[in-house]
Design a protein around this nucleic acid. Structure first.
Lengths: 339, 339
DNA sequence: TCACGTCACTTATCCGGTTCAGTAAGTTCT
DNA sequence: AGAACTTACTGAACCGGATAAGTGACGTGA
């Protein structure tokens, strides 16, 4: 089956290719009557502009890229990325931009993918997640002048647009809440330590605990997997002075932590309160349901997509902070039992 | 920064554009010495062929598409798709094919996306998941002659390649196992009822139960969400003759079911045994860990990708069945307690 | 020695859009 | 009425590769 081209439309409308192009793109240069005739013909024969031809002459690929740098087994269970992708799509689909995905093994590989995408002109811009300190991807993107939105800072990203969420505010709220319940030994199982937003959280956690007079604010680093989260929990709970509350950097680790506590015969929330970060459906379907720091990840993604599209269009885009996650109290938090 | 083109290479090598094209594509027509010189220059200046130009003349976009037709909140938590995507990528990345993703609301929208992708020549082929009976996507793909691999049959897909897993064999194994443990009242919480693989499972479940003399083989339909899974579980457990074992069509519902059982004061596996379908890390991190029907979803995806790439290359591709999921016994199954 | 074939290229065309530089009408101003 | 604009187009170049057709140099066999 032959795909219709603007030449076919031009023939049927009795005009030149140029006129068709102007008409379909809303450019001046054709009369309203002609434009409508051309649009009607395009509609009728089911015309879609060949993206390659368009990209070749117009320099826009109408696609953006996302690289995912996590092992398959984490990607599959971590709800964050799919939530983000859903959010991206809300904006991209509306402007019929495609999303190109690539799973990679290392940040180094990510830079290679960026270079290839840029060279191939395959994407007009990229989303960068998991910002690290001295992130090697940043200089590459700046060198290539590939429009990008960096999610997960704030950090030093040259002239790349950034979007981050107020993690410090969120963790402060969680700690205050736990203290108000009466907890004095609060621990945290953190995410990958070299991610910038993990550092922001750790710093804020340490600071707020210190300012409130808790000097045993331990953060155990982890890697977002359930296994590691469970292991970290076990390590915390076998201490003589075990914490009465633990904050987890993601929902998967929180669920694993809950499971470990139950396995050790501790009651949640009686002996241990649990707060999860990022409130996926996962948090509501375990028993007891987990108190969580909720944020609308899809909205976060949609916001990032709007920024990226603006950056691609050459509009000025400024760094922004997405709203603070708010605490959703559920059954996993309560005042600590008198010991 | 200017992107290097074959014209730049041609100039530096002192040859024509055509020679460069032949050299880089391994075509005959240039001497080995010249080829090596050209390849070296391309390497040196970091040349990547413009994908648009290539697609325009060569008719290959070097990209394949995947549409996801599930609401965001399910997508984010359902590990299946990310596992599948990871598998796709293993094969696609190796041949530097890009994966284009689109989240859609309805199967109707999926057909529109296929038409657009085809018209835009944006993808060379697509993955189709969640096959239904009388699936409206199949005739569209056949009409467009867009290469596709259909995952989730078997069913009637015209001349589109299919890949499915032996769901009947897997559920038979699970039922046999539960019966061997002594269970006589086995129920199932199924996935979306109009998906073809759900029907295959339901039919096999009913048949194996009947053949083994269990005539109370109830399947409660659900939609893969935790909420629905929990609700279905509650409905099953309030019956006078409640089941002693439940098989769930995905891991998310199984976890929700476990939670409901615990909330109702039933011990797992003492009062209720639970089997999950698809063994994601989720199953191991709840307490007790869930017995699951395990299959390697990434391998499944990789297999599908190989088939799609072969179909795109015009090679003959035959329908295939991926291996049977095998039962991984964990703590959630045991002989039923004497009542 | 000359016709012929092969090799190693070059030249030109094509893919399907976008866009710039014309151009022939019609309109406006003086 | 004629110059100056505007409108509504047309024609052609261009984007960066792939590729068919053409070309000159060289080797080879009769």
């Amino acid at each position: 089956m032959k795909r219709p081209t603007i030449a076919d439309i031009a023939r049927r409308a009795g005009v030149s290719k140029g006129a068709v192009s102007y008409a379909l793109n809303g450019q001046p240069g054709v009369s309203e009557a002609t434009r409508q005739r051309i649009v009607a013909i395009a509609q009728e024969i089911g015309f879609n502009p060949n993206s390659a031809a368009r990209a070749l002459s117009g320099a826009r690929a109408r696609a953006v890229g996302l690289t995912l740098c996590r092992p398959a087994r984490i990607l599959s269970i971590e709800p964050f990325f799919m939530g983000l992708i859903s959010g991206f799509e809300q904006e991209l689909a509306a402007r019929s931009y495609a999303l190109t995905l690539q799973v990679v093994a290392t940040p180094q590989n990510e830079t290679e993918v960026y270079r290839r995408w840029w060279g191939e002109r395959r994407v007009d811009g990229v989303f960068v997640t998991d910002l690290r300190e001295h992130d090697i991807r940043i200089p590459v993107l700046n060198e290539l002048q590939l429009p990008a939105v960096v999610i997960g800072g704030p950090g030093d990203t040259g002239n790349l647009t950034q979007l981050w969420s107020d993690d410090a505010g969120a963790i402060t709220e969680a700690v205050r809440y736990l203290m108000a319940l009466g907890h004095r030994r609060i621990a945290r199982v953190g995410g990958l330590p070299d991610l910038l937003h993990t550092r922001v959280r750790t710093k804020a956690f340490t600071e707020v605990c210190a300012s409130l007079g808790l000097n045993e604010a331990v953060t155990v680093p982890s890697d977002y997997t359930g296994e590691e989260g469970g292991r970290a929990t076990r390590r915390l709970l076998i201490e003589a002075e075990r914490p009465t509350a633990i904050i987890y950097d993601n929902d998967v680790m929180a669920v694993a932590g809950l499971s470990v506590a139950q396995e050790m015969g501790l009651s949640v929330p009686g002996d241990l309160s649990i707060v999860a970060w990022d409130d996926s459906p996962l948090c509501s379907l375990v028993h007891p349901p987990l108190t969580a720091l909720s944020r609308d990840i899809a909205a976060y993604g949609a916001h990032a997509a709007r920024q990226l599209l603006a950056a691609i269009a050459g509009e000025p885009v400024k760094d922004e902070e997405e709203g603070t996650a708010h605490l959703t109290p559920r059954g996993s938090t309560a005042p600590p039992r008198e010991s």
